[in-house]
Amino acid sequence: MANGRPAYGPISSYSRVQILHLVQSRAERSIQELHEATGLHANTIREHLQRLIEGGYVIATTEHRTTRGRPRTLYSAATGDPDASSPVAREKVSAAARRGDMLRRLLPTAASDLGQDATYQLDALVEHLEESGFEPVVDDAALTVDLTPCPHAAGRPEHRPVLCAVHLGLMQGVLTEAGGPLAADCVLAAERPEACTVRLRLAESAA
């Protein structure tokens, strides 16, 4: 917890962050692989994976075997790509767009100048970030998302690089699932631990 605000969602537990980092770095991980990499008990890993699946951040597939034996369940990050899309994530994106449209009917100026597709991407991204305990401030002119103060600032400094990498991957997955010209580019270097700004990138074809 930092500044009195807890972190929620998929990155509220560093054990879950470790699992996410592994499935983001390579798809189709088995429980045994995740156990060997993290040292966590297999049942603990299953519990974390179930939470991540329910949140739309991980997908499970059944191993295709050409030999005898029970096929394993394999786990991958939900990246939003056609082959790695979560039905939970798809529904979250659709619901965020519906709520965004309702807001824009009341406040037409709330739409992004980047166009409808980018507006829907930002709807989904903001809801994901708020669900995770952040208070995002989007600047669609500068293509930045200010997440200061970071709720993980009080955590262990050696955990920060993995936390940032995992969260950037989650943000990219949300933007890809929503579909549109925006992508999560990088976490900008900051002088203060509580400062966090993510730079977005506009696809060249839409620039």
Score class of each variant (00 low, 15 high):
81 D>N: 08
119 T>A: 08
78 A>R: 02
74 L>R: 08
124 A>Y: 05
120 Y>V: 13
98 R>Q: 14
116 Q>R: 12
122 L>P: 08
85 S>H: 13
100 G>R: 03
74 L>K: 07
91 E>Y: 01
122 L>V: 08
106 L>Q: 12
114 L>E: 00
90 R>C: 06
110 A>W: 11
125 L>E: 02
83 D>S: 08
120 Y>T: 13
83 D>Y: 00
124 A>M: 07
106 L>T: 10
128 H>V: 04
99 R>Q: 13
86 S>N: 04
130 E>V: 13
95 A>T: 12
123 D>K: 00
127 E>R: 12
86 S>G: 05
128 H>E: 12
106 L>D: 07
74 L>P: 04
107 L>I: 14
86 S>V: 02
81 D>F: 04
77 A>N: 02
77 A>R: 04
110 A>I: 10
80 G>I: 01
133 G>T: 02
133 G>S: 01
83 D>W: 06
129 L>N: 00
103 L>S: 11
133 G>P: 01
106 L>H: 11
132 S>D: 14
109 T>S: 13
90 R>A: 15
106 L>Y: 10
85 S>L: 15
114 L>H: 00
94 S>L: 15
88 V>A: 08
115 G>W: 04
95 A>P: 02
85 S>N: 14
102 M>S: 11
129 L>R: 00
120 Y>C: 09
99 R>P: 05
104 R>P: 09
113 D>N: 10
103 L>N: 11
108 P>A: 01
109 T>G: 08
77 A>Y: 04
75 Y>R: 08
128 H>W: 11
96 A>W: 00
125 L>Y: 03
119 T>H: 10
103 L>V: 14
84 A>D: 03
105 R>L: 14
131 E>V: 00
77 A>E: 02
128 H>P: 01
111 A>Y: 05
123 D>T: 01
96 A>N: 06
90 R>E: 13
101 D>V: 14
103 L>H: 11
86 S>H: 02
131 E>W: 01
126 V>F: 00
102 M>A: 15
98 R>I: 11
120 Y>L: 13
78 A>Y: 03
120 Y>K: 13
96 A>K: 03
135 E>S: 15
87 P>A: 05
109 T>K: 13
105 R>T: 12
87 P>Q: 04
91 E>W: 00
101 D>L: 14
129 L>Y: 00
74 L>T: 09
117 D>H: 06
113 D>W: 10
107 L>G: 05
105 R>Y: 07
74 L>M: 07
81 D>S: 11
76 S>H: 03
105 R>I: 06
92 K>P: 01
97 A>C: 12
123 D>I: 00
131 E>T: 04
122 L>F: 07
125 L>D: 03
128 H>T: 08
111 A>I: 05
84 A>V: 00
111 A>P: 01
